[in-house]
Simulated scan of single mutants.
Amino acid sequence: MLHEVNFLSYNKRDQVQGWIYVPAARPKGIVQIIHGFGEHSRRYLHMIVKFMDAGYIVAADDHVGHGKTAMVSGVWGDWGDAGFHTMMEDEHSLKKLVCEKYPNLPYFIFGHSMGSFIARDYAAKYGEDLAGVTICGTTGVFRGADKAAELLKKAIDDGLGMDSNPEFTGALMGWMCERCDDVTIGNEWICSDPYVQRDHAEDPFDAFTKPTSNRSLYDFTQMMLAIEGTQWAERVPKDLPFYNIGGDQDPVGEYGKGIYEVSNWLCDTGHDVKTRVYSGYRHEIHNYSEIKNDVEEGIIAFMDGILGI
């Protein structure tokens, strides 16, 4: 069964477009997939089907400025003026909608890349409502985020918030192909498979190749800075388990260093966290044909283990 849903964003401007995928069997839990920067939730169809086959209802939406939400609103690359918690609050709105339809089931979230930042922000505010969190392709201290934030804040103060300046995007993310050979698209850091690169770049629902407003890029930096260190981890409920996964050739995770930074922040504050780093793989470990089944099975095992299955 598939429910197509929509709801008013926290930014009070957009109608967020979402989907609830229900297996044709008695569900044992719910998992909400939170997609990353510049993409959309249907890039996770393989994972969605895998989770459904394992007995989980799957919920997902397209963030403001992204995917079908942007197609409906006509606004690409701008997230509104409500601040960096906007997407996190939208994910909470989706969870409430899902739980109205399917109450009293254990609830998990999976977040990839920016989605993992949102998931970590979510866990710090609403973690008591969750059974477990998987973060994939996450960041520790993101290189250059603080300096880019200063430049972006000045531009916003100068009245340029709705402009899009490639210089700022370059300052924040222009270094991310530094370990990639034959860079032609600019997204080679996501995966070494050229087909995945082309699919990502040519997808009409992707916002990756569309400009992001200065104010939204600033919100992106604030999202990252808000989930740094033990000061973030201390706000997460102690009994909420985490599964932290990524590739050791992912620049977002600073080639493994950032992944372990996050796990150590959680361990240092008394949390239960399991970490798995895939050697030789870039950002989208779930889009490599040779390991995606293993990645998904690991997430399912994490969730099943919490449920005692």
Rank of each mutant, 00 (worst) to 15 (best):
T138K: 05
G258S: 13
S9C: 09
H85K: 11
G280H: 10
G308W: 14
V183I: 10
D158H: 09
D53S: 06
I57Y: 11
K154P: 01
Y243T: 02
A119N: 08
S93F: 15
Q197D: 07
Y243W: 15
A54D: 01
V183Y: 15
I299A: 00
S216G: 04
L225W: 02
N214P: 14
E89T: 06
N165I: 07
F220K: 03
L151M: 09
Y195R: 02
T275E: 08
Y278N: 10
R198M: 06
P204Y: 11
A233Q: 14
G74E: 00
Q249F: 14
I299W: 01
L266M: 08
V133K: 08
E261D: 11
A207Q: 07
P211M: 14
E91C: 14
G127C: 07
P106S: 08
H3F: 03
A155K: 15
G67C: 07
A148M: 09
G83M: 03
G65I: 13
D78Q: 00
K50M: 11
T269Q: 09
G132F: 12
L240C: 09
E297G: 00
V141R: 13
V295P: 07
G229A: 04
D81Q: 03
I291S: 06
E188N: 04
A119W: 14
H66D: 07
T138M: 12
H271C: 02
F51Y: 02
W79R: 08
